[in-house]
Every structure is written in structure tokens, then in C-alpha cells.
Amino acid sequence: MNAQKKYGMSIDVDRCTGCGSCMVACAVENNIPPAHAGANDRNGLTWIRVYKVDNGEDYPGKRSAFIPVLCQQCGEHTPCASVCPQQAVDVDPRTGIVGQMPERCLGCRYCMAACPYHARYFNWWDPRWPAGMEKTLNPDVAPRMRGVVEKCNFCHGRWHAAKQKAAAAGKSEIEPGDYVPACVEACPTGAIRFGDLNDPSNDLRHPDSFRLLKKLGTDPKIYYRSKRDWVRNVAQASRPVSSQKEASHG
């Protein structure tokens, strides 16, 4: 069997320009349909979402930052898995990835209430693509149906593809370079990096890094980094500061 992996991410907030490339790449990779006419900021589908935050001061002291928030892939006992009555959520012990199984989901949305990061999304509508655009769908990812919850799974289709490539070469271990989520690939400033947290050769868990809402003890596998103290403080705030706005999304 494979050696145990613990996939995680490092996101350098100081490098993020808020361009939204990660959000677009994610939507394309994971067959996320165009927003329904009735969708708004609260019920659209955005597995990764760039939040704009500021330090709460007025000009000239005002400073802004962009924090991409995706499923934080909490430790081994995630809030979402604990509440799911359907066993539709599990943490794969071999990869540490929190998996979401749409076919098992009954749409109760307990997991969305339990998730402290608002990283889970509900399909309020059947997925629809404009005529002809269904040809652009990624065959490695199954579209979800109305009435189920979905979320980031570190581009599960790419994990499958990497496993298949390794198997074709007669190996059971994948090459680290073969498995990179779409957002990591798309980030023009290299703010998002991805890898095995158990691998000592990468510094994803840099001592200076912090995690969102650390006090909750959810043990996320997404490590953020910033040299600015106020950014680090925002990341620990239970409620968003009043001036916090979200970057627009499609």
C-alpha cells in the first residue's frame, strides 16, 4: 500500500493580488456551472473564494489584503464529517483529503452549518451550461446534481489521473509533480503552493505560517503566511470585521 501522505497547501497572503485566477481555474477544472440567474453571493458555487480584508483604518493608514479561502482540509476529525448523517464525508487516511460524496449526500446541509470556514456550497439549482459549452467539461470530474453539497477536494480528478499515470509506469507511488491542484497551477504570483506536509523537503508548514481560526482546534492543512500582523489577526477573528468585503465572483 501507499505510504501515508498528508496533502496540504501554503498560501502566501502577501503575494496574493486578488486577481481571482484561482477561482476561475477551479471552476473550470471542477465543472462548476455558470452562476444561475437567481444566484447571489450567498448561494453561488465557489470552491475557492478570494476574500478582501483590510486593517480597519482610514486613509492614509488603510491597508488591504486578499485571502483565498477554500476547504481547509481539517485534521482527522473534521466538523463536517462529524455531523454528516449519511457518511457522505470522510477523511482519507492515506492522503488526509476530506472527501465529499455527492451521491450519498441528502442535502441536509448540516456540514455547511458546521464548517467554520464557509467552504461548503449547496447546489440550489441543476447544473446547466450554455448550449455547446458542455463540450468543455472536464471528463475527470462528474458534475453534481441539484440538492447536494460540494466543496474543494484538492482536485480529486487530478489525483486519480496522477495515480493512473503512475500505475501505467508500474509504480504505486505518484510523482509529486504529477499532482498539482488547478488553483496552484493558475496562481500567477506563486502564492499558492501544494505538497505533502509529511515530506520534510518542502517548507509548507513554515514556522511563520498561521491557520484560519486556529483556536477552534480543527487542525487545517491549509497554512497561510503573512508578514503583516493585522492580517494574522484578521485570520483569527471569529466574525469578519465590518469593513470586510468579498471579491466579486462569477
Binding site: 455527492p102 451521491e103 475527470d140 462528474a142 458534475p143 480528478g157 486519480h160 495515480k163 493512473q164 499515470k165 500505475a167 501505467a168 508500474g170 504505486s172
Partner: peptide
């Protein structure tokens, strides 16, 4: 079905 990932490589070669 479209929600199934099956790899012949993993089964036949490995």
C-alpha cells in the same frame, strides 16, 4: 457511469 473513475492501468499493470 460518468461518476466512476476506473483505471485499467491500476488493475492490469499493477
Amino acid at each position: 457511469p460518468e461518476n466512476v473513475f476506473f483505471s485499467h492501468a491500476a488493475h492490469v499493470k499493477l
